[in-house]
Design a protein around this nucleic acid. Structure first.
Lengths: 230, 230
DNA sequence: GACAAGCAGATTGTCGACAATCTAGCAATA
DNA sequence: TATTGCTAGATTGTCGACAATCTGCTTGTC
């Protein structure tokens, strides 16, 4: 019998599709932070009943990008400067851990996948598709987590990714200018292919810090304006 | 006006209560790993309709203690030795981070709370209430996370806690013997009150390793038996 | 005018029923 | 016998309607 691996067929519940739709809307910024999600309106737009929609919303609440107040509504989470700060300082430590764990497990498949994802980022950059650029950059970054062979670490990263993507999208939309076309990931990829683990860890930390400072400054500006307006 | 902090009143939705009930049943081992949750049967037992029950189950799926297969059912997660291993090796790193972050923020309230939670563990031990002993021990341990002033770190810990509690409960039920009455947390508490952060980190790591090895051995035994039976 | 009470509309939470899907068992066929 | 097709029962997914709750406005009272 020929050896052939079939991948599981896709979930075909409405709920799963709704989750994907809503997540995308939030992560791309179509649904803004703090915005309320009206169940009736959304269910009518999607042509589904409220039951699967509500179940989908529960999932996203647990995923950390929605928040729910009983009898008041479900809202896109608000982003504070501290949230961003917390996420990033946590991410730094996780990155070091992931690189350490993945380091010995790197193989040809790892390097191939690394190149593939790097290429995807470059393609999105050429296309000036900022949403996809953020998405692919996070996927490139996520490879070390997938290779670290620790389910909890990977799961934690995936949870965090949602929020990181949301933060970046927010930032991109705000400054509303073309993305730097230089390839900021080149060094990162090269270091992951090299022999110096410490150097890779150090670069991951510093590389992240760059965008982070910018993002944080933006969020602080937002809060300042908000408190002045209130 | 007198300064008085009111805590938010409890969620009064059926959903929230169902979540609490189900979580408790899973974490205490009343619902065993791999077991299927029949929606109709549970909803009848709880005297609620399936809608809030299903929403509650979605939350627990995202929380990581249930798993769902479309049109097949929702099941309590299966616990493999690798899952336990992953959780613990991740937890070690998180612990070091939490202690580091919380260290400078320790104050009188921290020490008081530390003693209070330590006392709760001792009380549960005296009562021979194994479930509560596990619960309080994890709460004692969680204090450093609450004090670390990082929302992502805390949230990650809380997610992990569910599974740790489940693993321990499983183990306790399996060996079915009285819990050691000696106070294994004394040194931990003393170190957290002291001046040597590195020592505290080291102890947290080693202290965890103890129970961990036992738990892991048990899980490996389970898997061996399972593969032999199949 | 300030303030409390109460009503109306909108929205969320919950329910019972129906539709879609899966599973196990049996019959039919080669 | 092994395999396929079918059917009945059970279970999950989805729907539309009703109940509970909140919010803002109006009204009445001082």
């Amino acid at each position: 019998m020929a050896k052939l691996d079939f991948s599981p067929i896709a979930d075909t519940t409405r709920r799963a599709e709704i989750v994907a739709l809503l997540r995308r809307a939030i992560l791309t910024g179509q649904l803004e932070p703090g915005q309320k999600l009206n169940e009736l309106r959304i269910s009518e737009q999607m042509r589904v009943s409220r039951a699967p929609l509500r179940e989908a919303m529960r999932e996203l609440v647990q995923e950390g990008i929605l928040t729910s107040i009983p009898y008041a509504g479900t809202f896109v989470i608000n982003v504070t400067a501290k949230d961003i700060d917390d996420a990033y300082s946590f991410n730094k430590v996780m990155d070091e851990l992931a690189i350490e764990r993945a380091w010995k497990l790197r193989d040809q498949r790892f390097f191939d996948e690394l190149d593939r994802r790097h290429e995807a980022v470059k393609q999105a950059t050429r296309d000036l598709d900022t949403t996809r650029q953020i998405e692919t950059a996070l996927q490139l970054h996520g490879l070390i987590y997938e290779w670290a062979d620790n389910s909890v670490l990977l799961e934690t990263w995936q949870r965090l990714t949602s929020r990181l993507q949301m933060y970046f999208a927010l930032h991109q939309r705000a400054r509303n200018e073309p993305v730097p076309s230089e390839d900021v990931h080149e060094t990162y990829v090269q270091l992951l292919k090299g022999k110096d683990m410490r150097a890779a860890q150090r670069h991951a930390r510093e590389h992240i810090d760059l965008d982070f400072e910018e993002l944080l400054a933006y969020a602080r500006g937002l809060e300042k304006r908000a408190s002045k307006g209130a």
